[in-house]
Design a protein around this nucleic acid. Structure first.
Lengths: 302, 302
DNA sequence: TCGCTGGATGAATTGGATTCATCTAGACTG
DNA sequence: CAGTCTAGATGAATCCAATTCATCCAGCGA
């Protein structure tokens, strides 16, 4: 039989661990710090080891506390969101989908008419943001995560993977400008750079692409760290590329619509390996069927 | 700010929903049924709707209760298991793997020496059972689930899929017996049948295989519902096949070792589509790296 | 060195959970 | 179809676990 720990002590522990302060946790729960102290001690006695390292200050979690904390926090997030959902007067009908900004505006939104045609009864709400929403807290029903490997914190399925190519407007390659026959020729054009904030140690940037290209075309000078245009946001970089301002290393998935329509062209065929697009949701989501329809649809329109 | 429901009422609700009886829930929690009644009412008032349908009896969950219950149960299972894990004196070193019986004995165990060679530092404990263990309760670290589609209650990744062929011992096809050149010839041999208890409406059985075969070889009589040998367990059926007692419809994955060694042969090339093998684990498992190594290893030795 | 902040500790207190006593609906029985 | 029994509802009374109070202590900063 399952041996459930005292739930009050879990709640006190979670608040204290989240704020790393008994005083603040007490304020949050509307009790005195003493109450937190007592409850945490109870849990520590059950676990047979300290969960907080109290000094030297500041307050910190022990290894045991570190293992406990994410699980308890997720559990409470889940409890809160499911009770809120069940309490809601109206049953939500739209499926809330969140994805990185560039993917939402360049891939998802242009294809939404096709979705509406196939599934008019399932309305979508697209939340394009590069922040990671908390699905367990009910911020969205489904997230499209963009990562090298499968996320393991939620239920995930890989839809497709992308590759990165130098991409530009066909207008940029008009008459009177040098043709691109080999990688080194790209350097005659303005190179458009944008930031990768995902913590990847080897993001698919110009410096990486040129390094790979150098291995087949030694004429490319090493350490070309000068970018003609630099953006914070991938989405703005793509806008600049579409406007014919230069060449950028872009995901073939994100610009697939523009490639197909001829609005953008690949400037060179050398590709960098990219990331996976994962449809992610909480376990046992109540609208499983809609989520599976969406994942299957994404694969089908890839 | 997250609005956490009263945890005591969640506990009472979970026990009552699991046993579908206030009286039994009370006994489990060591309180009187009145206590359960009061706590459940509190939760129902928070949700603004009944969670149980009390009459006509027997007690049943309402739709709202049905949505709440799996989430709360999973949460408590998770709490109990993580606290137990943190409380454990010794840190567990073996990775506990559970899989269906036949797969464990026919596929996994014969390949374990290869695992030990590659990962001597990660010890495996194999739990072969056709029961579905509760990973959230900590019954095992990792399960190999066998299903048509990806499980969505936990983190899952598909490793490979199988197909079903008629398989027999090469000794069965010796001299003095009719050769097998077409599907109908199989009927001259003892057909070995075993039960599919997974609830699949179209399990890969002899009747299904013969139905498909009939579409290419009309000589096969319809409704051949006579099996020469019938087993409850796939694993016993395979033993009988290996002993040369007849032909069975077997998963090419489960008998791959015997096929490769020549101990068993395919009696016919017509295949039925099979199931996926999924490596499944709880979200945010503390030994993620070992689990990923195991999944990658399974793929590599497929 | 002296406050000051934040947490620990043990006794006292209190309020939310539990029980008790009673009531009711529905099921089963002969 | 009464008679009986089971399972849960309800409201007042009770009680114990959670909280507070009062006090103490360690570390940090001025």
């Amino acid at each position: 039989m399952r041996k459930l720990p005292p739930l009050g002590s879990l709640r006190a522990f979670e608040a204290a661990a989240r704020r790393l302060s008994f005083r603040e946790a007490a304020a949050e729960l509307g009790v005195t710090p003493t109450a937190i102290s007592h409850q945490v001690r109870i849990l520590e006695e059950i676990c047979g080891r300290p969960l907080f390292r109290r000094r030297p200050r500041p307050l910190a979690l022990t290894d045991a506390g570190e293992r406990l904390f994410p699980v308890i926090r997720n559990g409470f997030d889940t409890f809160a969101s499911v009770v809120t959902a069940v309490s809601a007067k109206t049953i939500r009908t739209t499926l809330r989908v969140t994805s990185p900004n560039a993917f939402a505006s360049r891939w998802l939104v242009p294809r939404l008419p096709r979705w509406r045609k196939l599934y008019p009864q399932i309305r979508l709400e697209i939340i394009g943001t590069d922040a990671v929403l908390n699905l367990r807290a009910g911020d969205a029903d489904l997230a499209i995560r963009y990562a090298r490997t499968m996320p393991t914190d939620l239920v995930a399925r890989e839809i497709f993977r992308d590759s990165f190519f130098p991409v530009c407007s066909p207008a940029l390659l008009g008459e009177g400008v040098p043709a691109i026959t080999r990688a080194a020729d790209l350097l005659h054009y303005p190179l458009i750079h944008y930031d990768w904030l995902n913590g990847d140690r080897e993001p698919p940037s110009w410096s990486r692409w040129l390094a790979v290209a150098r291995s087949v075309d030694p004429d490319i000078p090493a350490a070309t760290e000068h970018w003609d245009l630099s953006f914070r946001e991938e989405i703005h970089a793509i806008d600049a590329v579409a406007a014919g301002q230069g060449i950028a290393i872009c995901s073939d998935v994100v610009v697939s619509h523009e490639i197909e329509s001829g609005a953008l062209v690949k400037a060179h065929d050398l590709a960098l390996p990219g990331y996976g697009f994962y449809v992610v949701h909480v376990p046992d989501h109540p609208r499983q069927a809609s989520i599976e329809a969406f994942a299957a649809w994404m694969r089908s329109v890839a």
